[in-house]
Design a protein around this nucleic acid. Structure first.
Lengths: 100, 100
DNA sequence: TTGGCATATCGGGAAAAGTCGATATACATT
DNA sequence: AATGTATATCGACTTTTCCCGATATGCCAA
């Protein structure tokens, strides 16, 4: 894992917010109450609406977070669901505690 | 504390290295064996030599780390000694564990 | 198979970061 | 006072990031 890439992914207010929303999706996205999105995640459109930036920007932000192993994506039909990647966040936490 | 500013400070290979060096200065700077720099820190020149970038760049990098509360500085005569800021790093660790 | 959504990718303009050499400042020594 | 040394700041240039609109792709329904 490239540590710099992870910190770059976190160097943006909106991306930090997204990660924070995905930590507690039920609270952050109360409108979407159909699926068990605790397991699948939240689709791009919901995140985009809440963030208030353009669709292309949010799509790119999510792939930046994914490349940093901070979220994972699942495609279902025409939707892509993103969820927090526990392992990646824990790895980051360990790096900070052991190296910084 | 501005979280984005902290992550930006960490979004650079050299700055990450510096922080890592300052975690164990005795091992990272074996040449400088006079003072108790465990308490005071390491002067800019030593860090610059080890990093291999220009003096102005390292000076700026150190002030970026300082603004992010990751290091602290002490001026002694014509030298400025930088050391790791335990509190700042711990605060960062807590943010990651509670918000991301 | 055509049209409509959801998402991804592309191209670009503006702003910020990376990095340098030159210069300024501040302290120490003679 | 003059010189030397350590660090900080400035100005400039290049590279990267931010964020958009436009377009492409992939999937679904009629």
């Amino acid at each position: 894992m490239d540590q710099v890439e992870v910190f770059k992914a976190l160097s943006n207010k909106t991306r930090l917010q997204i990660l924070n929303w995905l930590k507690t999706p039920a609270e952050s996205f109360p409108d979407q109450q159909n699926a068990d999105f605790e397991n699948v995640g939240v689709c791009v459109g919901q995140i985009q609406m809440k963030a208030g930036l353009s669709q292309s920007t949010i799509s790119e932000y999510l792939s930046i977070l994914q490349r940093a192993d901070l979220v994972s994506a699942t495609r279902v039909g025409q939707w892509t669901y993103y969820k927090r990647n526990k392992e990646g966040v824990e790895k980051l936490s360990k790096i900070i505690n052991s190296e910084l």
